[in-house]
């Protein structure tokens, strides 16, 4: 039997959960509905109007629109930087916690990661702009991928350290005695056993890259522009193209949503395992 106070608490819990969901879903729904409206309906504040597909058609098929390319840029930069960041972070985590480098080296690395993670990205963007311009790399994929890797590295490394700490030391020692070099231990034991963790950390790194605005705004050019930067360009000097902006936002949300739906199980399980143990 559920007592009265429990029921009250349950009700309170539901209210909080639904309220929270509303805060997140509300704007998304509003954008979704705007993406099917004419500019005039949006400006007039009409709640209901006949849905139209013009916004999407313009985005996808109009000569002036580069949005498909922007999406491709985002995807490419996101995937490549995520793969690189995962490889580096997992190797670094393995080195830190199982190869026992000198204490100061570990402290230096983790200290750097923490400081770097705490500083706002915008602090670096200016100097990156100058650096990459001097190197002639401004506006290249290389510049964007490198900076996205750097941006996601501290957080990914901390997560991977947490996951790899769950792999017992004796397991690695057993593999060593079974004839594995450290490289083989990494490939045959550590990687298979931290798949869940890598999926979780990878999903977070990808989403971070996908939604990045500050870095891409400064380091991309017309050809390498990512979706978030492109969306911002819909706000032009003389008019704001609300409809297309909304449609573009909806389209850029889709990959992240799919990724989360598919990876949710891993992400939650992975993050929990890292946190609890």
């Amino acid at each position: 039997m559920i007592s009265r106070t429990t029921r009250k608490n349950l009700l309170g819990g539901h209210l909080v959960a639904w309220g929270y969901a509303l805060i997140i879903i509300g704007p998304m729904f509003w954008i979704l509905s705007n993406s099917f409206k004419r500019q005039i309906d949006i400006l007039m504040g009409n709640t209901f109007s006949t849905p139209i597909l013009t916004n999407y058609e313009t985005l996808l098929f109009s000569r002036q629109s580069d949005f498909l390319m922007n999406l491709w840029n985002s995807a490419m930069i996101g995937v490549v930087s995520t793969v690189i960041v995962l490889v580096i972070a997992t190797l670094a985590a393995f080195t830190i916690i199982r190869l026992e480098p000198p204490k100061w080296a570990t402290a230096l690395l983790l200290g750097w990661a923490l400081v770097f993670h705490m500083l706002p990205t915008l602090t670096f963007v200016g100097s990156w702009y100058v650096m990459f311009s001097n190197m002639g790399l401004h506006g290249t994929y290389t510049a964007l991928i490198l900076t996205h890797v750097l941006h996601a590295l501290p957080q990914t490394m901390f997560l991977m350290v947490g996951f790899l700490l769950n792999i017992p030391r004796e397991l690695i020692q057993a593999a060593r005695m079974d004839g594995c070099s450290y490289g083989q231990v990494f490939r045959r034991i550590v990687v298979p056993l931290s798949f869940g963790g890598m999926a979780a950390a990878g999903a977070l790194a990808f989403i971070q890259s996908w939604s990045d605005f500050a870095i891409s705004l400064n380091l991309s050019d017309q050809d390498t522009m990512t979706a978030p930067v492109a969306i911002a360009t819909f706000a032009q000097e003389h008019q704001i193209r609300y409809g297309e902006m909304a449609a573009a936002s909806v389209m850029s949300m889709i990959p992240a949503l799919i990724l989360i739906l598919l990876g949710q199980r891993y992400v939650v399980r992975g993050l929990m395992a890292g946190a609890v143990k």
Binding site: P168, E170, L171, Q173, A174, A175, R176, M177, D178, G179, C180, S181, I189
Partner: peptide, 16 residues
């Protein structure tokens, strides 16, 4: 250790 050709049974067994 990978070249010593010794087998070890750990307290925790350490099975993969």
């Amino acid at each position: 250790p990978s070249d010593r050709d010794m087998g070890m049974v750990f307290q925790s067994y350490a099975l993969y």
